[in-house]
Amino acid sequence: MNIFIILGMGAAVGFLSGMFGVGGGFLITPLLIFYNIPPVVAVATGANQVVASSVSGAITHFRRGTLDMKLGTILLIGGLVGATVGVWIFSWLRSIGQLDLFISLLYVVLLSTIGVLMLQESVRAMRKAKLNQPLPLKRPGQHNWVHRLPLKMRFKKSKIYLSAIPVVMLGFFIGILTSIMGVGGGFIMVPAMIYLLRIPTNVVVGTSLFQIIFVTAYTTMVQAATNYSVDIVLAFILMVAGVIGAQYGVRVGQKLRGEQLRALLALLVLAVGIRLAIGLFIRPEDLYSVAVGGIGY
């Protein structure tokens, strides 16, 4: 393992995450896998790295007052249960020898879906901008099926009255993704909160970061205890390079135009997804593999 490659990887992903305002976990884990780090280690270490990158973001939002603690806590309850279930699924997949395949498949599905959606959206926006048409502001309707669910609660900071059920469910789903894929899950949580739960945009990012910190921290602990797969040296190098890279990314991101930026990120996400997909389809050099440990390990 070359320390400079890891540093470069962390800095590059940090730069991109600063530039696009994403967590970067969904890029770190596949990159580590490409660098022949076992997926078990890549996922657990990725989760640990996300803790660092989301703490600094959450602090900023907390200072600005754009973090809804109550909403975040309810998301977190779902997230912790989801992460527990996720680690259980993770260990089970590992014991039957299907973990690597499952991680790759999940990434291929997720990255290609998100990449295509983002690309479509940004190309449409660019075309509109070229024709000098004003962008039609998407005004989400005030109510949808989510708002007919029981167990409603009032969230003062977000100024909404919303059922706890979809919030817990969303947290739960993201928790599973965190523990199996080593991602924060912000790239799914943020759109879901805006378009599905109709939560005001200004509190969405801060609140999702709050959930991400604790779910990734919890996942790191549980992975360390069950699979011994957190590599603190690797994680620390990634963290330090990542937070520094992010600062420069933010600066560059402010100078570029939004649509072009999103199109770029979409292409990058697609490229990573395609690279992972190719790995699934080409015939492996050796059909056999050996793992130390018996059934159940």
């Binding site: 020898g97 059909l287 056999y288 593999s289 793992a291 130390v292 440990g293 018996g294 059934i295 390990y297």
Partner: peptide, 8 residues
């Protein structure tokens, strides 16, 4: 230790 061989 135990060793597990898998085939694709």
């Amino acid at each position: 230790d135990y060793a597990t061989v898998r085939r694709k």
